Amino acid sequence: MTSRNLVKLFWNTLLVGGITTAIVGLFVRWHELQPFFADFKIIDIISAIVWLIVMGFLFSVISQMGFFAYLTIHRFGLGIFKSVSLWNAVQVVLILFGLFDLVYLRYSNFAKSGDPLLPFLVPALLLAVVSLVVAWLKSKETNRDAFIPALFFMIVVTLVEWVPVLRINSSSWLYTMVIALLACNAYQILVLHKLNAKSEQERQQKKIQNANKAPERQKKKVKKSTV
């Protein structure tokens, strides 16, 4: 990927994180922000929205760190296991293990006696459904082999990025962060192959331009030597 497209990816992902967090945060934390809107406190409203956008930028940076870390891990995995099918099998095991831990660990740490399991299943179901849709879109736009890696990235890497909020039992922050992370991760994984293709086109165009300029430079050298 060219540096220009890399910078474009960074800023676009940052924007996705900021906008998503602001929108989701207004809905999820409406019980806290409603008095500002009811009393029409413009300064407080703007401050709350700006704060949510800044938090979205932070979530976006975490997402991008996880994305580039996964690209490295994926290459290492292919190199270690020497087989795409074997590496995919390992990723499937880790996906199932991650989803199980998401439900089990949160239930065992935060559930009180008699609490139903369903509220602890919802985040895992949300993560799984969104990830399956994104992985399907990725495989549809590229090839079948991209399904498992995309699913692994969307589930396992998102879980790792989600850890700071998973350690606390705050439903508002839980959903605000995971939706922002899913939006950023989905954007990155779905746009990656497009940016790579665009970068390759830019390189080819640059080569053609350099090739066309070569005869002109040669003519200038000949003229200087004759003078």
Rank of each mutant, 00 (worst) to 15 (best):
A186V: 03
F27K: 09
F153M: 04
V50T: 13
L33G: 08
S170V: 10
V16M: 05
T20L: 06
I179D: 00
Q218T: 05
H193W: 04
V28N: 09
W136Q: 03
V157G: 01
I148L: 11
W11P: 02
N212I: 14
D115E: 13
P116H: 03
K224V: 10
S170K: 13
F110Q: 10
I45Y: 10
G98W: 04
A146H: 07
V222F: 09
L121V: 09
D39I: 11
S131I: 01
P215I: 08
A197D: 09
K219A: 12
I46P: 04
L26F: 07
S108P: 00
A111C: 07
A150L: 03
P164V: 15
Q64Y: 09
D44R: 05
M154A: 12
Q209V: 02
G56K: 06
L125F: 13
V227P: 00
E200G: 00
Q34Y: 10
E161L: 06
N185V: 02
L127A: 04
I179S: 02
R106D: 06
R106I: 00
P119A: 10
D101F: 11
E161S: 13
W51Q: 14
K223C: 00
Y175G: 08
Y104I: 04
E32Q: 13
V165D: 05
F81V: 03
F100N: 09
S225N: 06
M1S: 08
A128H: 00
P116M: 10
V156E: 02
W162G: 03
K206I: 04
L121A: 07
Q34G: 02
T142P: 03
W173K: 09
K223D: 08
D44S: 13
K112Y: 10
L192N: 11
F57T: 04
E200R: 10
W173A: 12
I148F: 05
I80K: 07
K194T: 14
V61Y: 07
E200I: 11
V134Q: 01
N5G: 03
L137F: 10
S113R: 07
G114R: 09
D101A: 14
N12H: 05
F153Q: 01
Q205W: 02
L6A: 10
K213P: 00
M55N: 10
S225E: 14
V93N: 07
S170Q: 14
Q201R: 13
N12F: 08
L174C: 06
L151Q: 02
T13C: 13
L159M: 15
E202C: 03
L96N: 01
P119D: 08
I168K: 11
Q201S: 12
I43L: 15
C184S: 14
G66S: 05
N185S: 04
V163G: 01
T20A: 12
R217N: 12
N109V: 04
T13W: 05
S108L: 11
G18M: 15
V134I: 14
V134P: 01
T72P: 00
T142W: 01
G114F: 07
Q209A: 12
L33E: 06
V129N: 00
V93F: 14
S83R: 08
F76R: 03
F153S: 03
Q209N: 10
I148A: 07
K198S: 13
F37D: 02
N5Y: 12
R106T: 05
